[in-house]
Design a protein around this nucleic acid. Structure first.
Lengths: 244, 244
DNA sequence: ACTTGACCCTCACGCAGCGTGAGGCCGCAC
DNA sequence: GTGCGGCCTCACGCTGCGTGAGGGTCAAGT
């Protein structure tokens, strides 16, 4: 005489819920071997075994559709499905890691900035995200490491210094001062040192930063107050410094 | 005169779809500043800015509900949300890593096993998953490393050898042979060497394996053919070997 | 025989974040 | 006037079930 199980017995033995069994049935994964006179689901040993297979595949993260394909088909398709799953998972992990890195960089900025208002924080987030799009992950790591090396205090000093230098440069530009004049040279030196503080002397980072300003002038102007004209003027002034 | 945007203009500028904008509105994230006479949505500069914030937060993986909370509240809640998000993400990554490890171990078994039928593959998967529940991740790493050290060929040999030894031991038990008798001692030596091949001499792994047999006798019997009586007999026989 | 409590059944909505029509009104150009 | 593109509001679909609602069934106790 073959063994008969009710839904709840099957549920207990597989660790699933009765509802899940109903769902699997609706999804075409496993039908009870029969129904009792009252319409109760009746399962046998074979169904239990099959459900254990299903549970295993679920534990590997396969979708119900994939599982259905696997148990209806044969071993090679199962191998394929596992390979695809490994692939998907690897990509997902990479994405999650990128996201985590982004979040951690923002959290770091937040910690450095101390108490800040929502608007500044949003700017910070947007700046970080914009940077993600223009710097490679190695460059971002380098920037992060440099930030840690400088320390929160020094970063706040730099951030306070920038508006001053930008305003000075803007004023010089408005007065059409000669980029080679002593005052502008002094401004250019401060400008250059602030840039170096950020890039850490990395030519690649400097290049990416320039590319970012060229690619998104509007966003960068909104964020830093530096437009393309000012950028060109400052670049010229810094260039005229030579190796000084 | 304030700037006016239509939905599709807003969509282009934010990289969202019109449908997404409708959805955000329904979710209470952003309402158009007004409606035209014909009922068309009208947005202004403020809405565009707010949407850019929303897009930023979405890029950080926040849910719409969290985003709503953030933009309706103030900066600290945003910081909290980010911290929670980092936490969630870390846990998620850990889980994914565990899952990936599991999948890779199975893929390795699959590669070692060569061409196999679906039933064997399922057994393999279930064995792997059962092991996940009884061995720590360091132990699993050790087992995996040991598998690689032994090589696929040797593993297949071991797997072929086991049924033989188990059958012999079962026969000895059925005949009620003295565990100290020469034939049983010979069997016990083979048994012990197979176990050592698996554990690599790691006492912790041996212990976990024994715990696994004690915790899930039915599953292990189904998988290996070793029931608790046989296990006790074999353990006694191996114990009687001493340091031989 | 009747009640009780534990099970069983079949809908069907809800969750997240939109995609994708369906069916119909608006607005501008030809 | 008519054609095309844009806009509107429903409303279902996807994933994997959880969680009732409303109502039969079964075995045991009284």
């Amino acid at each position: 005489m073959s063994v008969r199980y009710t839904v709840s017995q099957i549920a207990r033995r597989t660790g699933l819920t009765v509802r899940a069994l109903h769902h699997y049935e609706a999804a075409g994964l496993l039908r009870p071997v029969a129904r009792s006179a009252a319409g109760y689901r009746v399962y046998g040993e074979a169904e239990l075994l099959r459900l254990q297979h299903i549970v295993s595949l679920k534990a590997l993260g396969l979708s119900l559709a994939d599982i259905r394909a696997c148990i209806h088909a044969d071993a090679p398709s199962l191998g394929d499905a596992l390979a695809r799953q490994i692939d998907r998972l690897r990509h997902a992990i990479v994405r999650q890691h990128e996201l985590l890195g982004r979040l951690e960089r923002i959290a770091q900025r937040l910690a450095e900035g101390g108490t800040i208002d929502a608007e500044t924080l949003f700017n910070s987030i947007e700046a970080t995200i914009t940077m993600e799009n223009h710097f490679s992950s190695e460059q971002l790591e380098a920037i992060k490491a440099r930030g840690e090396a400088l320390g929160a205090e020094r970063i706040r000093e730099v951030e306070r210094a920038w508006p001053d230098v930008i305003a000075g440069m803007q004023a010089a530009l408005a007065l059409d001062k000669d980029p080679a004049s002593p005052e502008v040279r002094a401004l250019a030196r401060r400008w250059r040192s602030l840039v170096r503080e950020f890039t850490g002397g990395d030519a690649g980072i400097l290049q990416s930063m320039n590319a970012m300003f060229r690619a998104e002038p509007a966003a960068m102007q909104a964020r830093t107050g530096i437009d393309s004209v000012l950028m060109a003027y400052a670049a010229k002034a810094v260039g005229l410094l030579g190796e000084d």
